[in-house]
Design a protein around this nucleic acid. Structure first.
Lengths: 196, 196
DNA sequence: CTAAGTAAGTTCCAAATTGAACTTGACTAC
DNA sequence: GTAGTCAAGTTCAATTTGGAACTTACTTAG
C-alpha cells in the first residue's frame, strides 16, 4: 500500500526532486506505488533488471544471443527436450528457436539431434560436452545474480516468497489460456515476451 | 525444494507422460522445480503468461503495439512524464519510444508536447481526452487479469507477497547497475526486455 | 554575450524478428 | 500396404527493432 510520491496531478510545486539527483524518475515511484497492477509491474520490472545485464554479459562473453543461451539453459534442465518444449516454456516463437538451434549445432554446443523420443516428429536436443561446459561456467553467475536480488530478504522470507510465487504459477494453468474476450485465431500461442 | 518430475537424465522409463495429455511439457516441470534460479524463472514465466494475451488483445482491439500502450499507461500514472522516464521505467530504447510517441500524437491520444518541466531538453508528454478514455477503458482488463493471476492467494497472502516483492524491488537500487564483471561501454543501460 | 558541455529526442540503416506458408515425418484408419 | 491427418520444424518475406550518429535545446563557465 502506501502512496509515496505525489505524481499523478503534479503541479510541479517544489519538487521535480530526485529527477536528476538520484536519477530515479518520479515515474518509477508512481509505477511502484500508484499502479493499479502493482504485482505485475514488479514482476516485469524485476525481470527487466535481472535479464538485461545477464544476457548482455552472455552476449559479450560468449557471443550468444538470449534465445541461444535459453536453449542451452533449457536443455541443461531437461536434456533431450525438443524445440517445441523450449518454445512453450520460454515464449520464443519456434522459428527463432530453429535458427538458434542451428547456430548452436554449428558452434558444437549441441549433439547431433537424435530422432524422436515423445510423439510425432519431435527431435530430441542434447547438450554436447562443450555445451555442458558453457552451462556450468555460466549458471553460477545467474545464481549469484538471483542471490543478489534476494539479498533484502531473510531465509524465511525467501521461502515464503518462493511458496507464494509457486502457488501463483501452479494456479496459472487455469487462466493461462482464455484471453479477455476473444482468443480468435490464437492458435499457437507464444507471440512475444520471453523467459529464461 | 521438492523434485517433482524426473527430467534431467530421463531414460524414458514409463513416462513421456503429460507431454500430450495435458500439453504441459516435462521441461516446464524441470524449470519450475529443478531450476537453479527458481525465483527469476517464476518472474519471467509469469510475465510471459500475463503480458502475452493482454498485449495481443490491445493490439487486436485498439491497433496499438505494446510499446505504444506502454506510453499511454505510463502517462496515465505520471502525466507530464518524458520519453526518457518511460524508457527508464519500461526498458524500451528511446528511439522506439520516439516513434511510439509520434504515432500516438498522430492518433490524437496525446496532447501537443509542452516544452520542458524538469531539466535540459525534456518534453512533457500528456494524455489527451481520448488518451484518458482509452486508458480508462483498458485498465479494468489489466486489473482483472492481475486479480485472476492472484486468485490462488488469500487476501493476507497477497499482502505478504506484495511486501516481499516491494522489498526486493526497493533493494534493487543497489545492485541494478554493476554487471557480473564488465559494464564496459554500457552507457545508456536499457538494451532489451520490457516492462509494462 | 559567446563557447563549451551535456543530455533528450530523432533519424538512419543494417540486422534481427516473426507470421505465414511450406515441408517433412510420423502415427491412424482403412 | 495406402490415404489422410496432424503437428514439429524450416524457409521466406516483410516488418520491426535498436545501436550509432546526429540534432536540438538548454545550462554553465568564461
Amino acid at each position: 500500500m502506501a502512496a509515496a510520491s505525489g505524481a499523478s496531478e503534479q503541479k510541479i510545486g517544489t519538487s521535480e526532486s530526485a529527477q536528476d539527483l538520484d536519477d530515479l524518475p518520479d515515474m518509477l515511484e508512481a509505477k511502484l506505488w500508484e499502479n493499479p497492477c502493482p504485482f505485475t509491474f514488479r514482476i516485469n520490472y524485476l525481470a527487466l533488471l535481472y535479464n538485461t545485464p545477464l544476457y548482455s554479459w552472455i552476449q559479450d562473453t560468449y557471443g550468444l544471443k538470449r534465445h541461444e543461451y535459453v536453449v542451452i539453459y533449457s536443455l541443461a534442465l531437461a536434456n533431450g527436450g525438443s524445440a517445441r518444449d523450449i518454445s512453450r516454456t520460454s515464449g520464443f516463437p519456434k522459428n527463432t528457436l530453429s535458427r538458434a538451434v542451428k547456430r548452436l549445432e554449428l558452434m558444437g554446443l549441441l549433439e547431433e539431434r537424435s530422432k524422436a523420443p515423445g510423439g510425432g516428429r519431435r527431435q530430441a536436443l542434447r547438450l554436447s560436452e562443450k555445451g555442458w561446459k558453457l552451462f556450468n561456467e555460466t549458471v553460477p553467475v545467474f545464481e549469484s545474480y538471483e542471490e543478489r536480488m534476494l539479498t533484502p530478504l531473510s531465509k524465511g522470507e525467501r521461502q515464503i516468497l518462493f511458496e507464494l510465487m509457486s502457488k501463483v504459477v501452479v494456479g496459472a494453468e487455469d487462466w493461462a489460456d482464455d484471453l479477455p474476450q476473444a482468443g480468435a485465431k490464437g492458435s499457437t500461442r507464444n507471440t512475444k515476451g520471453e523467459t529464461q
